[in-house]
């Protein structure tokens, strides 16, 4: 079947199989930041934005993305690098395996929630599992990042 999807601002038309998941389609398109973790919809590693909203690309059919805009980490490199520095400062990235999905969800949260509380941050990011950090360093990094954003553009 033929689909047309905008990926990181660029339009692609492709003939795909109906059961192809978005994750595999995006990797075929060279978006290697999009990774498969659990494949049971639990870990959040495969997070991408569909029309600005975070979704799990391991569970979402590429066919469903027809006519929509998908953003991956490759499309948000500057912001990702900015937040990544806060993550590194706090030791919030150890093996780094969870980072692409985590960063994508943090960037979605920043767009969706205005001045989130700590509880709201934790709730928004609860679908991103991390085996290494125990989450506290990630939480500090997110809070510092939000405070920094407030400072530069209140």
């Amino acid at each position: 079947m033929l689909i047309t999807v905008t990926i990181n601002g660029k339009k692609y038309s492709d003939d795909i199989t109906p059961d192809l998941v978005l994750l595999d389609y995006l990797r075929q398109k060279g978006c290697y930041s999009v990774k498969r973790g659990c494949e049971t919809s639990n870990c959040g590693l495969c997070t991408v934005h569909l029309d600005g909203k975070p979704i799990l690309s391991c569970s979402y059919l590429a066919a469903r993305a027809d006519g929509h805009a998908v953003t991956t980490l490759e499309g948000l490199q500057e912001e990702a690098a900015e937040f990544g520095a806060f993550l590194a400062d706090q030791g919030g990235e150890q093996c780094g395996f969870c980072s692409p999905g985590f960063i994508m969800n943090v960037l979605a949260m920043v767009r969706e929630l205005k001045n989130p509380t700590e509880a709201e941050i934790q709730e928004y990011l609860s679908g991103n599992l991390c085996r290494c950090t125990g989450y506290q360093s990630q939480l500090r990094a997110v809070k510092n990042y939000l405070a920094h954003k407030q400072e530069v553009q209140p």
Binding site: S41, P54, L56, N128
Partner: peptide
């Protein structure tokens, strides 16, 4: 809804 997996899952 809020405890079900995560925001990304609940968007799907």
């Amino acid at each position: 809804t809020r405890h079900i997996v995560g925001v990304q899952f609940r968007n799907c």
